[in-house]
């Protein structure tokens, strides 16, 4: 039974990597969309909206991602809906990502001079127009490096989806380990593949940051 060659292990891990990549993309894109909505709510001057958003962010930033995965996995089932690990993982990672991105982006928006808001308001732009034409284009420039940096956290976060049974890179590693009894090799390869996914993004984020600091 113990005739799994190195290449069989590696190719199976690489096959599972696509699910890690896909889940990361879903979480990042959907989380970005929800995060943008949260950002609008957070910097709006409507008191209750701001408070509600803050509570949302506090919850998702202040509890472990693993707990959120469990809550979605078991919680959505209570509503009588069949939950696959795929759905629970996408939902939990989307909400988790959105909370962090909203906070990162809020920092960028708030770093803009107040005069920008006031000037936009004097031009009789509505709140949405102020954001759309004045604030966001400027905030976007500052937001790119930390957003790219956070994408690394999202990829690493998807590893937890393996715990609720989503067959990603980590889960494939566990399964291969159970079949081959070569934990040192298997987990080294798993770590190496994660590294290959994350390091270019980390490096790029760091470079963007430096470029931005020079430009300023």
């Amino acid at each position: 039974m113990n005739d799994f060659s190195f290449w069989v292990i590696l190719s199976n891990l690489l096959l599972a990597t696509r699910w890690t990549v896909l889940l990361s993309l879903v979480a990042f894109v959907c989380g970005g969309a929800v995060g943008l909505a949260l950002l609008f709510a957070r910097v709006s001057k409507i008191r209750w909206l701001d408070t509600a958003t803050r509570a949302y962010i506090e919850f998702f930033q202040g509890t472990p991602l693993l707990m959120q995965l469990f809550l979605f996995f078991f919680g959505v089932a209570l509503l009588g809906i069949e939950v696959s690990p795929w759905l629970a993982a996408s939902l939990a990672l989307t909400f988790w990502t959105s909370a962090f991105l909203a906070e990162i982006w809020r920092g960028c928006v708030e770093s803009l001079p107040k005069g920008q808001w006031e000037a936009a308001e004097t031009l009789a732009l509505s709140y949405i127009e102020q954001m759309r034409y004045v604030i966001l284009p400027q905030a976007l420039r500052i937001a790119i490096p930390p957003t790219v940096g956070f994408s690394v956290q999202v990829i690493k976060g998807t590893a937890l989806a393996s715990i609720i049974g989503f067959v990603d890179l980590t889960k494939a590693g566990t399964m291969l380990n159970n079949a081959t009894f070569r934990p040192f090799l298997v987990y080294s390869l798993v770590a190496l593949i994660y590294f290959a996914l994350c390091y270019p993004l980390s490096w790029y984020a760091h470079r963007l940051e430096r470029q931005f600091n020079v430009a300023r």
């Binding site: 690394v152 990829i155 690493k156 976060g157 590893a159 937890l160 393996s162 715990i163 980590t170 590693g173 566990t174 934990p183 040192f184 987990y187 080294s188 798993v190 770590a191 994660y194 590294f195 994350c198 390091y199 980390s202």
Partner: peptide
Amino acid sequence: IIRNTPFIVQLFF
């Protein structure tokens, strides 16, 4: 290496 791999993989390793 640590910053670019998930904690759970480090733990399993």
